[in-house]
Design a protein around this nucleic acid. Structure first.
Lengths: 231, 231
DNA sequence: CTCTGTCAAGAGCAGTGCTCTCGTTTCGGT
DNA sequence: ACCGAAACGAGAGCACTGCTCTTGACAGAG
């Protein structure tokens, strides 16, 4: 196969592409996306800045590559956390999922900000990013599915009206046939709550109220598990 | 008073300061904070870029001024929405609060991103920003206080452990003496949920699931009202 | 009227993303 | 084995950016 018998040129190209992403990721982790500079990457790699354009057509493309890698890293971590939890304990899996996402975010704050912070102006997420981006959400849904049969809601879900009913039904039939539309909607609420809380913690909005946020986070995850009716 | 009898110089200075902020806000609203350029502001005002530094010592200082203005605009809008609601209907006030925040965010997406998106690298929020930033949270707490007596929780609040118990107690005694620590903690959960949901909507994370988000937002606000036990 | 502090403007520095050109190297087909 | 085409790295250069420093003009206070 052509993918196995590669010319020296192709091997060098692939290696350099990885090297560029590695150095870019290093600068991203240290300084943030805003200060990620193509020239600085080139300088660190000992090459001319113009040479980088043979590998990434623009700075945005390089950032997109980093975004995809970050989504996959976070998604993989979340999937592993869910898979490692006891199969019959949806609540434990929910905790594992939330903890893993928060831990990753705290370990990679700039990458988290790149994914869930302010989008780059005039930047439309390319189609290649949506699948990696969906992994965390799908992990959350897999938790709901694993506990779908034994869900015990303390309060009944308010009826879904109009467009929301259709959206929820479409999602149910697409990714979670054994979950009710009401429970899936609660999953969406918990999803936005999780990332809202993590963003507030990382972006400094909890300073002065519940910072450090470890116990607030643990408590909230538990309360949201109740909200989801997880057994 | 010296603030009334102002020299022509002082008046010109104040006017130009406002003019600069106005033009900067215009560019911010159009292009986002990332692309806000001091030189472009100066160009638009017909002055040299170096002259701007007599009014704002750096780009960050100008951004800080815009941040404070934005926090105040959002805070004022939220306070008015709460105040305009029926005094004896905490649930209606909660809806008004959430709707006003979302409406402002959708009308001023770049300013919202400046407040709740990725913080600028190496930028520590100056002390002048914390009071304006707290206004929305205080408006939320005022809703909790107005309904504190008649709260009916569908599920009891999980016990607060360790540091969280202390943090919640400190907040209660500082800003909401008639609210229980458990309810206030739920308020914090709803607070992070609200901004998480709005951020996801504005930053494009709801595309493909519940976009447009109007009905999802309304539904979630109602469910969170139940979560808070609002009458 | 003089003197002092404020002001706008211009030049300049160091940095950015990106483009174009120019030799050189490498690869695939003949 | 050769030769043209494609890929490559380097360099110069463009149009920007935030920011600093100097220079000369002007307004306000004594």
């Amino acid at each position: 196969m052509a993918t196995v018998i590669r010319t020296a040129r192709e091997r060098a190209r692939d290696e350099l592409t990885l090297e560029i992403k590695k150095e870019a990721r290093r600068q991203l982790a240290e300084e943030g996306a805003q200060r990620l500079s193509l020239r600085a990457v080139a300088r660190e790699l000992g090459m001319a800045s113009s040479a980088l354009y043979r590998y990434f057509p623009s700075r945005d493309e390089l950032l997109t590559a980093l975004i995809i890698d970050a989504y996959n890293a976070l998604g993989e971590r979340a999937e592993q956390a869910v898979a490692a939890g006891p199969p019959d304990d949806a609540r434990a899996r929910w905790h594992a999922l939330c903890d893993s996402v928060r831990a990753w975010a705290r370990q990679h704050p700039h990458e988290y900000a790149l994914l869930y912070g302010t989008p780059v102006p005039g930047y439309a997420a390319p189609a290649e990013t949506v699948a990696p981006a969906a992994r965390v959400a799908l992990a959350l849904i897999s938790v709901l599915r694993s506990g779908a049969g034994q869900v015990q809601l303390t309060a009944p879900v308010r009826p879904l009206r109009g467009a929301l009913a259709e959206q929820a039904a479409a999602l149910v039939s697409a990714v979670a046939p054994e979950v009710s539309a009401g429970l899936l909607t609660r999953g969406l609420v918990a999803w936005t709550q999780l990332f809202g809380m993590i963003s507030f913690e990382l972006f400094g909005h909890l300073v002065g109220s519940v910072d450090p946020a470890d116990e607030f986070f643990a408590h909230t995850v538990e309360e949201m598990a109740d909200f989801l009716g997880l057994p």
